[in-house]
Write a protein that binds this DNA or RNA. Sequence first.
DNA 1: CTAATGCTACGATAGCGAGCGAAGCATCGC
DNA 2: GCGATGCTTCGCTCGCTATCGTAGCATTAG
Lengths: 241, 241
Amino acid sequence: MATNATFARIAALAGDPARAGMLHALMDGRALTASELAGVAGITAQTASSHLARMTDAGLLAVEKQGRHRYHRLASPEVAHMMETIMQVASTLQPSSQRRLTVGPRDAALRAARTCYDHLAGRLGVALADAMVAAGYAELGSDGGILTDAGLGFLGRIGIDVDDLLARRKRPARVLCRPCLDWSERRPHLAGAVGAALCTHSLEKRWVRRLNHTRAVEVTPKGWRVFREEFGAELGSSASS
Amino acid sequence: MATNATFARIAALAGDPARAGMLHALMDGRALTASELAGVAGITAQTASSHLARMTDAGLLAVEKQGRHRYHRLASPEVAHMMETIMQVASTLQPSSQRRLTVGPRDAALRAARTCYDHLAGRLGVALADAMVAAGYAELGSDGGILTDAGLGFLGRIGIDVDDLLARRKRPARVLCRPCLDWSERRPHLAGAVGAALCTHSLEKRWVRRLNHTRAVEVTPKGWRVFREEFGAELGSSASS
DNA sequence: CTAATGCTACGATAGCGAGCGAAGCATCGC
DNA sequence: GCGATGCTTCGCTCGCTATCGTAGCATTAG
């Protein structure tokens, strides 16, 4: 069947180290220029251009031209979801002979709190998910998750546009959310429409702030208070650094 | 970070046409011998051996030695899930210039009804999912799905071990199920623990039967009746061929 | 207009890896 | 025991592609 060839094509595109680096850099949901992507991948602009053209042609990336810059972003949430699942499989593999090779300071910040395409991940994401489950706001399982009525009320109370959230769900009567297995914590956190709304709102309200040009985020003092008092989340001191 | 390299490694393994063919053949959840896999991939036994060793080493496959045969299967449901999402992205890509190239008779059977690792897919899978949603037995959204109390009762009524299903869910109070976007129908069908139980039970009760050595399944006369009368599913005549 | 920046197109190189033939190692049937 | 089958290891070839240098095109700054 033709599906076989296209499947291999997509996987092969994600399977090159340079392209994988670019895709990872785009996992924060923002759009980056070709030069920036060449930088994170450690290759020249010419090579990056070729890679980007191929990934765009295959539907993995979308491009937006702005002046002499070309902004590339992941084409769809489906692409981000695909990368999540590949990461999940990859995380079960011990890097063999280089166990704790790369735990630099930047890596530490990523493990503490980061964005995963459109939602929060890392220790922060897991802590928030745990707190919401403990409070009865959400239920998470290996096959999916739901936001309870209490959870819906909670989100409205902290200022999230619940109507928009209700409109975004499709058929089901209850608001569903998606668990996303964290590659660093090996625990599920909130993804899907609920996770995206929570992340957007946290950034807008300045509960968290992006760190320079990475996927890492930092919990602000205000966010620290909100997460503890409103969510009841147990954020160890390590989650802020 | 080291994650980048392992990510690329996993994706690259899935990105070779021969390996992709083998992985697809294993998507029915069964274990196949190295020779069989070499056959479906269209390569010699030597080459297949190399591929299988690498995929096993990377944690994509698990091997079981039985006499002089070596049975290979997908190492985990996570690997199957990863392949689902890659297929989902691949299905959004028009094969460009070869639109309707490969719609052979075998392909037609696959589109009608097939297994997708551990659950039913194709027009049959979608029809059953639609019927269960229409009957109020399940709710499916883009971020997840749940089995209602009525649905739980329904599954028990048709002979599925509901207690086992309840035990398999993890933390949540409700039974969750996972929607799996069908690559041929572009519609969600039932996956996860619920979908797996339904598929296993359908095979045991001879409602469906596997066709030779493919992922395609055939609806038996008995199944035809059960699916129409019990599920209320609208199976067009095309779903049986 | 001119120079600089961002990106792309083309051509050439080099290295990886998919593929197979030959040989070797296990296991089964007899 | 012997041959046959299933699979793996080794060595080799060949094709694909990632990479970069050079050149060229678009856009902006001055």
